[in-house]
Every structure is written in C-alpha cells, then in structure tokens.
Design a protein around this nucleic acid. Structure first.
Lengths: 342, 342
DNA sequence: CTGTTAGCGCTTTCAC
DNA sequence: GTGAAAGCGCTAACAG
C-alpha cells in the first residue's frame, strides 16, 4: 500500500490511551508502569501488556516538567573538527550513557556570541548541567556568573580557579617524555615544538626542561617553536642537524611534528632509534600508525578527561562536588622510536 | 561570601513570577513575550523589562508538550571516533543550528542493542526526527518499522530503498580520479585499495575501472586490495614495482594508503608526479597536509552530506519530502601528486 | 488496591 | 486589552 513508511501522522499514544484500553485510570496506569507497589499484579500485567501492544513510550518531557530535572546535559564544544574535543566528548557520552542522561551537542566555534546563543537554548531546554570543551589548553573566560546549573570545563579550564575544570597536565607530560629518554641513556635532547602562543607548547617544554635540569642537563640549543605541522618538523630537523651539535633525542611538541621529524631524519640517513630517539605528544592514532618506526608518544588521555568531567558534573548535581582544577595524569606509550623493537 | 559560585538552588523563575511582578496575568505575560499583537505597547514593555531583569528563560519543555513538537532531533552515530561521522555531524549541526533545533548526540558503537536503547530514550524525549550515521558505506538494516518520526540515514544507507538516505557516490569518485589521470596524460594506472569487504573499496575500483575501459584501457595488474593503512600502501608499492610492468599512476583507496604509497615511492627514488602520479580519496586534512608532494584527492564532502541529511529531515518534517537514496557528488582536489606544482 | 483531585509551566480559546 | 479557565501528559497526595 501507499505510504506505509512515511512519517506516521498518527497521534502519539499517551498514557490515557493505555489506561482506557486497560480499563483503569491514568493514575493506576502510571503506578503500574512505574513499578510502584500499590497495584495488584493482575492490573500491572494487563496495563503492561496494553502499553507494550500500543508501543507506548512515556513522554519524558512531561515527566521532566514535574520532576524539575530533565535528565539531559549540554555539551558545549568549540572545535568539533578538532582532535581534542571528540575523544573528550566520547568519554563524557560514555559516562552518561551508562545512566539515563541524554546529551545535547552544540558547537560554538570559538564564537562567544554563538556560545551565548546555544547556552540560552540549552537552559531553555532545562539541561541539568553543562560541560564546556575548549580547543586549546589555555584558560578561557567562564560562561557567565548567572548560569543556574553546574558547569564543568574540560581541556580549556575556566580562568576562574573556583570553577570546576578538568585539564591535561602538560608540564608533567613534558617531564615524562624526558625522563623516559634519560632512562634509556639519552643525554643530548633537542626540543621541537608548535606555536609558542599555545600554553600546551610552553608547558610541555617547561616540564621537559625541568626534568633535564634535575639531571644536570639542558636542552640542546633553544626550544624551537614553530607550527603544529609535519612540515615544521622536517624543517626543524634540517636546522638541527646543520647546527652540528650532538643530538641523540628529539622531543616533539606533537605527534604531527614528530612525524615530520621522523621522515626528515630518515631522508638524511639518520637511524631511529639507534642514532636519535624521537618522542611525540597526544598518541594520535593516524600519526602513530603510519610512522616508521612506531612513535613513542605521551597520551593525554582525552577520553578519560571527558569521563572525569562527566563524573564531576554528576557529583555537582547531587551537591557532593569539590570545585577547582583537576589535572589528568598523562601516560607514556613506548614504541620503536625510542627503544629498538623486539 | 561562601558558595557564590555553587549551583544556585534558587527555584527557577517562571512565567508566573514575571506576571506577578509586572502586575498582569500569566496569559497576558505570555502574549506580551511571544509578540502576539493583542497587548498594549505599554504592557509589553513592562513585561519584557521584568522578564529581562529576572533573567527569565521560558521552559521549552512546557512549550513542547503543548506544541506537540520538541524542536529537537536525534543524531544516532555509530563511530564517533571515526573520520566520517564527525564531519557529517558538523554539517548537520550546522544546518540545524541556524534554526531553533537542538541536537541530541548518541553513539551506538555498532551495537544494535545499544542503538535500540538510545532510540527509545530519544523517542521518549520526543525528538521530531532522527539522523542515523553509519561508519561504512555498506547498507545497514533500518531502525525498525514502527519509528513514529522521520528518519534520514547518512553515509550508510538503509537497506530499504524506500527509506531516506544520503550517501557518497564512490563509483563516481573512482571515475573522477581516473578521468583526471587520463586527462593529464597517464595511461598505466594501478589501483591499491583497502579492505575488499568494504563496498567503498569495491565501488571506487569499479568506477575507476569503468573510466579506464571507456578509454580502451585496463588497470595495470589486478586491483590490489589490502587494509586501510599506510603500511599496506608501502607494501603494495614494493609488489607493484617488482612486478616490473610500466606504471605511471596509482589510484589509492584512501588518503592513508596514498600516504604510504607516496612515502614508499620516495624511498625507492621514484619521482612524483614526474614518473608516477598518485591520487587518494577523502581529502583528509591530516594526511594531505603532511604529504610530499601535496596529495591530489577526491573529497567526498562529508560535511555537505550532513547538511543535506538535515535538510531532508526538515523536508520530511513538513511533509514535503521525497524519500529514496540521494548521492552526494564528490569533488576532485588537484595537488602536486598528479600535476607539478607551480 | 483504585480513582479522584491537584498541579508542573506554559499557551490558547473566550468571555469581560 | 486583559484575565479566567481549560488542557498538554504526566505524577503525587489523598480519599474511598
């Protein structure tokens, strides 16, 4: 027959329909379906059966309006296209998905106006809470003081330290990279990083520098800041080798830079890891999987960050929160670029 | 003072509060704020002013329950971590964001159970429609016949051709790649692709083969299926060159494979594009930007696909839809791997 | 155990 | 112009 697939314009089935067909009142039907124990088993059976048959789906909107909670949260991201917000978002979705929460996704694209617009829409929809995901590790201004629901900032913390934020620990990450290199016998560590205007670049370099200092060492040459690209990694290698200082390890500000460094070293006939070891940051699958040899990298655990953000939001929802900034501990993943593969 | 930042437990301000403070009835306040022209300018001014002052945000839930429409749509994806769903999702968010729609995001992770679970939650929240995003181009079973709202499938079409689906045109993409190679004087085209179990791999090869056939040519050697990795691209080059048949172009099943092919050719001293031209698919930024030379690639326009899916959903919402499968036309992006750079 | 009543926050007749 | 009343779908309190 004709539009058997078309959007069934049939009026949605309501609890009243169910009650009617089951021959009980709406109140009783409600109790039966919600497992309240003030109904006879017989009635419950009958109601459940009818509900099933009519494919009744309770209107959560109506429930929410009563309960005062909607069971939804807003995820306000700023670089949906970026590499960071996505895993964070997954982690959050993960933590929520377990329960009954649904997630509203909005991309503000670094535009404060758009962000306020989305914020308004979300509050109108009575979200129970918000997670705000930034695109850089640099602190960002808070949403505004009069947001009536708990907010957790992820990746980019709020500039207000009293707000709840979950961030990566870039200093520690830089330290981890260098400690690994020192532990595997390297002594001449160069550092090639990305855009110096990113706190991620500076913090990682600071952590690396501190770890070197503790061993009585210093970076070979200056920290070379540039851009977050493979091309910069390649260019930096040229400068590095031409400088003619001994180098037996390169810490790279990102996996992409590291990939460029690896390729350039290979072109020049420098053996990795025999002559020079290379470490990256982010443990980003697409870069890692194609590298020769496999790239040792510091995983910033974005997904866990999203999970933690969700957990903290939950905590805030039942008032058991302890606001402030929480840093996720990075995790070093060792591969062939620092240690010969088996 | 103490918890100035804590979740203000203050009861949400309602329309009644506004009405009371403005000295009018709820009905009048409603009319005033909604721009109905049955209120005096003076009253409207007063009400608006009070609403502003109290930071009144109308409860969309209550509005939705009345209107019968919630102004929300569900985005049911299956590989949030993948490369395809994200741009699609962005395109959709884009198209919706313009209006008043909010988007629920759910990741089913290829798990039918989880998908049904999310579906139920979304229907309970009374979404007005659904977009279902797959992770492969292979058709997928529809959600189920008794979904009471319009559904549009993106990337992975529904197996039911009567459903509304928006897909990429892989055959055409394969054809576009080869036509470009032929137009730039290539005659010996090899084909290295990914996992043969993916229709994307087979369709692209079919399109490429058809274009070659029309020129009285055939692929050099068999279409070499493997995996969607750089490593496979490198391995395939070895096999290809050892086969000792003349080759002046390689069509690669993905940018990742192409990247491997480029690197291997470079290692072997084969010049690109002088000796051999290389084309990839997806125009995926991370792979493109690091390639030497820049990689010519067929852009599948995922974001536009998401946008179209959203537009079709809109159409379905006001009944002006024409279900069926719609293919997005791919777009060739020429770079240095096929044509010498300026 | 069951049904009646009230009410969540809002919009919409329909009298005044 | 304005407000009282009804009602969207549902749950909670209280009678019966």
């Amino acid at each position: 027959m004709a539009s058997s697939v078309g959007p069934s314009r049939a009026r949605k089935v309501t609890l009243r329909d169910v009650a009617q067909l089951a021959g009980v009142s709406v109140a009783t039907a409600s109790k039966a379906l919600n497992g309240r124990d003030e109904v006879s088993e017989e009635t419950r059976r009958r109601v459940t059966e009818v509900a099933e048959r009519l494919a009744f789906t309770p209107n959560t909107l109506a429930q929410s309006i009563l309960a005062g909670r909607s069971g939804t949260v807003g995820l306000l991201t700023n670089d949906l296209d970026g590499r960071f917000s996505l895993p964070i978002l997954m982690g959050a979705e993960d933590a929520f998905g377990a329960g009954q929460m649904s997630v509203f996704l909005c991309d503000a694209r670094e535009d404060a106006i758009r962000e306020q617009h989305h914020l308004k829409a979300l509050l109108g929809r009575r979200v129970d809470g918000l997670i705000v995901v930034g695109s850089k590790t640099d602190p960002r201004p808070p949403l505004g003081s009069k947001v009536p629901v708990p907010v957790v900032y992820a990746y980019a913390p709020s500039t207000d330290p009293a707000d709840s934020s979950v961030v990566v620990d870039n200093v520690r990450a830089g330290r981890a990279a260098v400690e690994h290199l020192l532990a595997t016998g390297r002594r001449h560590v160069a550092h090639v990083s990305g855009d110096v205007s990113y706190s991620a670049a500076r913090d990682r370099a600071a952590g690396a520098g501190a770890a070197l200092a503790e061993a009585g060492l210093d970076h070979v040459g200056p920290v070379r800041y540039g851009s977050w690209s493979e091309a910069w990694g390649r260019a930096a290698v040229a400068a590095l080798l031409d400088a003619d200082e001994p180098v037996d390890a390169v810490v790279c500000g990102s996996d992409q830079i590291a990939r460029g460094v690896l390729d350039a070293l290979r072109d020049r006939g420098v053996r990795v890891p025999d002559d020079v070891a290379v470490v990256g940051f982010d443990n980003w699958e697409p870069m890692i999987s194609g590298s020769r040899p496999g790239l040792t990298s510091v995983d910033m655990r974005f997904q866990d960050m999203g999970r933690r953000a969700a957990e903290r939001l939950f905590a805030a929802l039942d008032g058991s929160d302890h606001p402030g900034v929480e840093a996720i501990e990075p995790r070093l993943v060792v591969r062939g670029s620092t240690v010969p593969e088996a």
